[in-house]
Design a binder for these strands. Structure first.
Lengths: 331, 331
DNA sequence: CTGAAAGCGCTAACAG
DNA sequence: CTGTTAGCGCTTTCAG
């Protein structure tokens, strides 16, 4: 049987409440009794039971991190950063994967609610209404999504998207396809919106294709439509989609960037290594994970609304973008 | 304030213990009172507090998954599979990242102990002695490591390693470098051991280089030594190390696989996409994650030792391996 | 500064 | 089948 506070009390000859204070309000107990208690605890290998403590304090010292897909390379660095920052502040973290399904996400939050002090909702697929409703039970911080009344950490993908479109136009592209992501994705909406705006500003044509699942398959399945369309460049919802598109479009006999320029979003490690190396919009995921936890902890400890933090994104140019053939041939 | 079992009791006109039974031992309560209770619970939005329940049942319905580095692409699919399987069985999972540090790992396990029914230790860097000691507090299942007396899920990297060496020898390589991994890594030891054995069997030379950190930097920093050595092929501790090596060796003016064949381990998604696509040993991470949770749940619910499960690995040949120049020039 | 006592939300014998 | 009565391990008044 695990050693409890009573064992320590007995061992050190004080009352349990004194032991309790020694651990959670050290200043309220005489220095010498305190060291005696600590020594006894040490000897017995006592460790406070956080769950039991939670029952009376109503603070679990646990946080939830809820993401759409752990295996999508966008998320792991964010999860890692969040977990590290949480540990720094002595919180444990539950990580849950919703498989991109809103129902699962909702159920996960509900079943976790009593066990966490707050949760980080990353790229949530829930409707704003449901988020707001759940937000009454669990303090949230929302990452990559703007929700009225909730603290958010936003990666400003619009700015990176604009840079991408500017880059493509500067290379000479006049028709750009955009492979849209899941319709419930805030990021997907922002990418599309910013791309339309930027294209319009340049008087370039923008051709939406999708929505597509945020996977290589999603990109691959859009290849035929892209190849048969007028676009000489494409902006994909994320790196995975870009990769799937490239693979499939090459199977169709086109070359990237010779026949088609491709830009991804996320700057996952794959973008650096794939062939051709991917021009992509870098997302500050580490800062977002760490910052999200900071806001969350701030919120759950002070009760204040920490407001919204916006992080910059920027285009990283690599090898998957080049001038279109037409532009090359008319100097 | 959250709604508790008493509220439901009051609302439905029964005692709290009846409500409790309605939720956790439905068959012990009359069907009609049960539906009445459930209706009241529904109306009030009641959800059992799992932490409070844990206090009396001594079962938290939480599991821990402890890994060396969430951002290492080897782990996310494993974590995802483990999390999904746990959810299937109605467990929540704490995920923790040890940053490859044994101290952190130990502290993590200790602080988590009271809050989980068991933990999956993936690629643990702890000494066998410490694992065994911690294992008295927390039921473990150990992944990718053999520990006497604990249930293990092993990915038999030795067989894949043998295949890799056989493959290199068949191509004509007579001197093979092996970039060894962290000395505390069981997998690293197995790779090295199997490589030595297989090389000896073929009468080929084996040249250990390392230990190296399991990262691209680790691979890069071994490049000079490899390039100046006799080896025409190298077996890297993992895909990341292989990638780092390739990048750096190319910077030194060598080409892969022209001047040097490189084999990775893990078959992370990067291996498929990098240039040249990486010949690597496929690790059944999804099966390991799922299977690990199965063993763990079996163990914590029945108390039985589920024993050890061994999963096969196999070589996936891609573009980073080819005959050595010398072999090509003497037909 | 320390002890006594009540209680967090839920379960688990034990009667009835 | 259901109510009563004790706790699970810890914190938190309230006295002293």
């Amino acid at each position: 049987m695990a050693v409890t506070i009573r064992d320590v009390a007995r061992e050190s000859g004080v009352h349990v409440s004194t032991v309790s204070r020694a651990f959670s309000a050290a200043h309220m107990v005489n220095a010498v009794t305190r060291t005696r208690v600590m020594a006894a605890a040490e000897r017995l290998g006592y460790r406070p039971n956080r769950a039991a403590r939670a029952l009376s304090t109503r603070r679990t010292a646990n946080l939830g991190v809820i993401v759409a897909d752990i295996a999508n390379p966008f998320f792991p660095p964010l999860i890692k950063a969040a977990q590290a920052q949480a540990r720094e502040r002595d919180y444990h973290v539950f990580v849950a994967d919703t498989d991109e399904r809103a129902r699962v996400e909702e159920e996960l939050v509900r079943s976790m609610a009593k066990q966490v002090d707050g949760a980080l909702l990353v790229a949530s697929r829930l409707s704003g209404r449901v988020i707001a409703e759940l937000g009454r039970d669990v303090p949230f911080v929302v990452v990559n999504r703007r929700v009225r009344g909730l603290p958010c950490v936003l990666m400003d993908v619009a700015s990176g998207t604009r840079q991408a479109v500017d880059h493509l136009v500067a290379l000479g592209h006049r028709d750009i396809a955009v492979l849209t992501g899941p319709s419930a994705s805030w990021t997907a909406q922002r990418i599309r919106g910013a791309a339309e705006e930027a294209a319009a500003r340049h008087g370039a044509g923008l051709h939406p294709v999708g929505p597509n699942p945020p996977t290589e398959e999603g990109g691959a399945s859009a290849a035929a439509e892209v190849a048969s369309g007028p676009a000489t460049a494409v902006l994909a919802y994320n790196d995975l989609v870009a990769l799937g598109l490239i693979r499939e479009v090459e199977a169709l006999g086109l070359s990237v960037p010779g026949d088609l320029s491709v830009v991804g979003v996320d700057n996952t490690h794959i973008a650096r290594h794939c062939r051709p190396a991917l021009t992509t919009v870098d997302m500050p995921v580490v800062a977002a994970g760490r910052g999200g936890i900071d806001l969350l902890v701030h919120r759950v400890t002070t009760g204040e609304d920490p407001g919204t933090v916006t992080l910059d994104t920027r285009l990283v140019v690599r090898e998957s973008t080049a001038p279109p053939r037409s532009a090359v041939s008319r100097p």
